[in-house]
């Protein structure tokens, strides 16, 4: 099958790949580019582990075709830390003990980032709603909710 060229920005750097038509963005990111931070949980859009941010919107990379991402600005959890310093959300997930096996964590952090980008001071209900497309086996969710609220507080203190 003929391969399709696709170019997009991933975490601030230009990427160009040839992918087979029908390749998901998840497969392109993990297998072609080597960014394994999005996880393949269900491969059918029901678990949220593969979540990435495309042009500011939360998207499931397992249901997004790579060839539709030409020119897009894509962000993944792997691009959050700057110069070895963790992003406030990553720091908060550690401090709140919000991760155990870690498989859902990158998707949770992506969902939380889109929330905080739009709603810097979310209510608990806002956080629950924002995370409602992501499932977690280990934590019982409460530590994750607390981590997102903690990150929001840390952000507003830094801004003040």
């Amino acid at each position: 099958m003929a391969k399709v060229p696709v170019q997009f920005t991933l975490n601030g750097s230009e990427k160009a790949e040839f992918v087979e038509s029908g390749t998901t963005l998840l497969a392109a990111l993990r297998d072609k580019i080597g960014d394994t931070s999005p996880k393949g949980g269900c491969h059918q859009g029901t678990c949220g582990a593969c979540s990435v941010i495309i042009d500011g919107e939360l998207r499931l990379s397992c249901l997004t075709l790579a060839e539709t991402c030409g020119g897009a600005d894509i962000k993944t959890t792997a691009g959050l830390a700057e110069g070895g310093v963790l992003h406030p959300l990553q720091r908060a997930f550690l401090d709140a003990f919000a991760t155990q096996c870690g498989f859902c964590t990158p998707g949770m952090i992506m969902a939380a980032k889109v929330l905080l980008d739009r709603t810097p001071n979310p209510s608990r209900e806002d956080v629950v709603e924002a995370l409602s497309g992501n499932i977690c086996r280990c934590t019982g969710y409460e530590p994750i909710i607390q981590a997102v609220l903690l990150a929001a507080r840390a952000n507003s203190q830094n801004a003040a």
Binding site: C42, Q44, C47, V128, G133, I135, R137, G140, Y141, E142
Partner: peptide, 17 residues
Amino acid sequence: TDFNQYLMPGPGDLAET
């Protein structure tokens, strides 16, 4: 056989613990 059919609660179904 998948998360469409296997009921896995999300963060909206938490009891006060």
